[in-house]
């Protein structure tokens, strides 16, 4: 058994998320862990990964130590192939040019629907959250990877509000809602890697993170999980992955 290098939950998310991407893909990345993980994948083993940002960027190579504070900042354009309008880069999703969308999440449910709009009743919300940004467009139009913190209050049976659609109410309800393409592909947390059942579209544990038990994942989740059989165990982050990640984010902007 190799030693697991000490890393923060956010670092674990970034590294495991980066492993989900493949060379040659076109990935639409949100700010924070997604931007960092896509950049990490590019540096580690996917030099041909084309990163899109909603500010209007195709083919970004973000510089180490110069992470942009949003995906609309000039730093996102460094060494890009092309800049274009924000509506136009989002339209690439609609036309089908994007292989995978990649974003963070505040609250998710068993069908992979995400809420970033309201906690409580939208008519009189307990908390008004920032809203969708491009999240609704990305999750409506392509295959999604979501990287998020694993807490019981964030993994709920049904979200208060569907900001970014996963599989809606399961089975074929996504396609029946007018969303024929895409859907939730993977959810990455500090505890496990999740996919979705082909039929019911309920969330399914595909692999446990190093040192994590089934019970621990279930206890931190507000609905009943399906477990893949056999259930695999994710390989721990390597020193090379962690070293490259810390080189990209030396100030721990997104990995504190």
């Amino acid at each position: 058994m190799t030693d697991v290098p000490h890393c923060t939950a956010a670092e674990m998310l970034a590294i495991l998320s980066a492993r989900q991407l493949a060379d040659g893909q076109v990935v639409f990345a949100g700010v924070g862990i997604p931007l960092l993980a896509a950049t990490l994948a590019q540096r580690l083993r996917c030099p041909g990964l084309t990163i899109l940002f909603e500010g209007g960027v195709i083919g970004a190579f973000v510089e180490p130590g110069k992470l942009p504070p949003s995906t609309n900042d000039q730093r996102c354009t460094k060494r890009a192939n092309m800049v274009l309008g924000s509506a136009d880069v989002l339209l690439l999703l609609q036309r089908g040019y994007v292989d995978v969308g990649f974003m963070g999440g505040a609250q998710i449910d068993q069908y992979g629907n995400l809420n970033s709009s309201f906690i409580g009743d939208p008519a009189a919300p307990r908390t008004r959250l920032p809203g969708t940004g491009g999240g609704n467009d990305i999750s409506s139009l392509t295959n999604m990877i979501v990287a998020m913190k694993h807490e019981r209050r964030r993994f709920v049976k049904a979200v208060d509000f569907i900001t970014s659609p996963g599989f809606i109410r399961g089975n074929r309800t996504r396609a029946e809602s007018g969303l024929p393409a895409g859907g939730m592909f993977r959810v990455i947390t500090e505890l496990a890697v999740f996919g979705f059942d082909d039929e019911s579209r309920r969330m399914k544990v595909l692999a446990l993170n190093p040192g994590v038990s089934r019970e621990q994942v279930q206890d931190n989740t507000g609905f009943e999980l399906i477990f893949d059989d056999p259930l695999s165990m994710t390989a721990p982050p390597t020193d090379h992955e962690l070293g490259t990640l810390r080189h990209l984010d030396p100030e721990r902007l997104f990995t504190a």
């Binding site: 999703l93 409506s140 969303l179």
Partner: peptide
């Protein structure tokens, strides 16, 4: 015409 927002509560609002 667009293809996003469908099926979401963003549209319901």
């Amino acid at each position: 015409p667009i293809r996003s927002m469908l099926g979401s509560d963003v549209l319901r609002q």
